[in-house]
Amino acid sequence: MANVNDYVIEVRDLVVKYGERTVLDGINFRVPRGQTFVILGGSGCGKSTLLRNIVGLMRPHSGRIFINGQDFTAMNDRGRIAVRKKMGVCFQGSALFNSMTVGDNVALPLREHTKLEESTIEIMTKIKLELVGLGGFEDFMPAELSGGMKKRAGLARAMAMDPEIICYDEPSAGLDPIVAAGLDALIRKMQHTFNLTSIVVTHEMSSVELIADTVCMLKDGRIVEMGDMGRLRASSHPFVQQFLDRRPDEEGEGGSEYLRSLTGGD
């Protein structure tokens, strides 16, 4: 039986609602230290909402989220800030501050949260950027970087405070396969080098195969399958099979019928 602290993240009976609509309904899972946990699912299944709850951008309707054994959902703001310093987030659109250089972006958490000398911060910024393969790009503005480079810079910023947990929201969205594969390799490298616990939200199967230790598949706000890739492939759940086989929805045909009824054609 594993010690409670071996699970870095634990989600218990999480329910999230937007107004009357239930977006997540009774989510339960645990992420052991040093593992990559992938949240997989179609568009609008609530996977980004789940991530927003884990990083504390939303408060759930009910249920609890434990980070390192502490109840993150019940904390006051000060406690949450302390937990967030141990957590890095890579946003879908990288979310770099456009008014600052890449170097200032990476240095920002260090400047705000630590009392380090400016020269130390500069060195640390350089190290973080080199780690993601962006050495020498300190003085570039985010607008001057390509999509893949922005994501890497976002990762460098997320790594600035040496977090224990790192969350990626659709890391390979909008990137070509080569750049996406490079990013997957980087995620893998980060996990191995720093024993990071990672949570990745994605719908890219190719990248899931590469990075996932555990996969959890969401549909309509519920977990339909959870386990390693082998278990996912062996799953008898129709949605999982449909997702893995990339079969279109039945509703697609319903849509074309609807269109026909509107245009009156045959």
């Binding site: 990083v55 504390g56 951008l57 705000e112 910023r157």
Partner: peptide
Amino acid sequence: EEIDALDVMG
């Protein structure tokens, strides 16, 4: 998402 980024950085 820059506001969110600020938030998660504490």
